[in-house]
């Protein structure tokens, strides 16, 4: 527990500084109201709006830990959302819709995993295939329109309230906790890290790298399906063109802000979801601060750049040397102070 805390400390600090910064521009940022059985306020919005990216980041963390990358998650959101909306529109009910969406996510993950682990295509290329073609699949399901539905049960997953909080908040937190426990209480975390750092050495030690890789991409597909369900339930419609558009990049960014290396190996799910919250705080903060929309991307890019530079290991060592050389320069000074005595 303490180890996890030390690991995510930089992300927690970043989040705290960022929230303070947003509060400067929008003083009511931290205000939370309770009325009509629900909490509301900008922070609650951050927790809710960050759900899709946080979920994608959970799956992406595992994929990146194996030295892979999954560019298809945004598209998988569109596919699974379309599948769910289609199931409801066809009158199959919310439960079936959820199951169908999750199954679609698993199938997408299986496809990616097989391309990577069995066929041996580089992950960035393998997942690019689904990323570009998948929206076409989603459009086939929705027949090119925004497939709307009116099913209070399914919509509850996107905009419902449970114990005062939006339901998506529970979904992403539970998913992240479940995955973290699964990784650390079983040996999966160790094996995933091992194949990410050195696949051939792991295979020689008897690790079943192929099956693990497929499983990891399927997990990513499953997380994307959850994100797709939330996004679709939220607007009560499946928008094949826009659902999850570019979110794969936000998810990768969240993992990176979480201090996980794109070269694979050691990973922290907690740090990644904090990374997702950092990104969402930036997004929501920009909206609340009321800058003209032309500045949105510039401000976001600037903040992300600052965060990544502050986290870079090179800077840490430069800082170490800078401090040392400063203290060393100060060292020869005791002579005058002695004169003073």
């Amino acid at each position: 527990m303490r180890r996890t805390f030390t690991r995510v400390l930089p992300q927690l600090l970043t989040l705290a500084v960022l929230m303070a910064l947003v509060t400067l521009f929008f003083p009511q940022f931290l205000a939370v109201d309770y009325q009509g059985g629900r909490l509301s306020g900008p922070v609650i919005d951050v927790l809710k709006r960050g759900a899709p990216v946080a979920l994608l980041a959970v799956g992406m963390t595992l994929v990146i830990a194996t030295r892979g990358i999954d560019l298809s998650v945004g598209t998988v959101m569109a596919i699974t959302g379309a599948a769910a909306a289609w199931a409801i529109a066809s009158g199959w009910g919310a439960g079936t819709a959820v199951l169908l969406a999750l199954a679609a996510g698993l199938v997408c993950g299986l496809w990616n995993g097989c391309l990577v682990a069995v066929v041996g295509i580089q992950p960035i290329v393998a997942t690019l295939i689904l990323m570009t073609s998948g929206r076409g699949i989603a459009q086939l399901i929705t027949e090119g329109r925004i497939l709307t539905f009116n099913d209070p049960g399914f919509a509850w997953l996107g905009s419902g309230i449970l114990a005062g909080l939006p339901v998506p908040v529970f979904i992403w937190i539970l998913t992240a906790v479940a995955v973290a426990i699964l990784m650390r209480r079983t040996a999966l975390g160790l094996l995933v890290e091992a194949i990410g750092i050195n696949r051939s050495a792991s295979a020689l030690a008897g690790v079943n790298a192929r099956v693990l890789l497929i499983a990891v991409y399927m997990a990513s597909g499953l997380c994307a399906a959850l994100a797709g369900i939330i996004a679709t339930a939220d607007i009560r419609g499946a928008d094949a063109n826009n659902a999850g558009l570019w979110l794969e990049l936000d998810a990768i960014l969240a993992v990176v802000i979480g201090g996980n290396s794109l070269l694979g190996g050691r990973f922290s799910v907690a740090a990644s979801v904090l990374g997702a919250m950092i990104i969402q705080t930036i997004d929501t903060g920009i909206l609340l601060a009321g800058f003209p929309s032309e500045y949105n991307l510039v401000i976001k890019a600037g903040l992300v750049l600052i965060i990544l530079v502050l986290q870079s290991p090179n800077l840490a060592s430069e800082w170490y040397f800078l401090r040392r050389s400063l203290t060393q320069r100060r060292e020869p000074k005791p002579v005058p102070s002695r004169v003073k005595e």
């Binding site: 009511q28 900008p42 607007i235 419609g237 928008d239 826009n242 659902a243 558009l245 909206l287």
Partner: peptide, 15 residues
């Protein structure tokens, strides 16, 4: 987009 409209409207309502 619908998602964009919903998210931004939420922030308008807060702000």
């Amino acid at each position: 987009t619908r998602t964009g409209g919903k998210e931004v409207m939420e922030s308008f309502l807060q702000a």
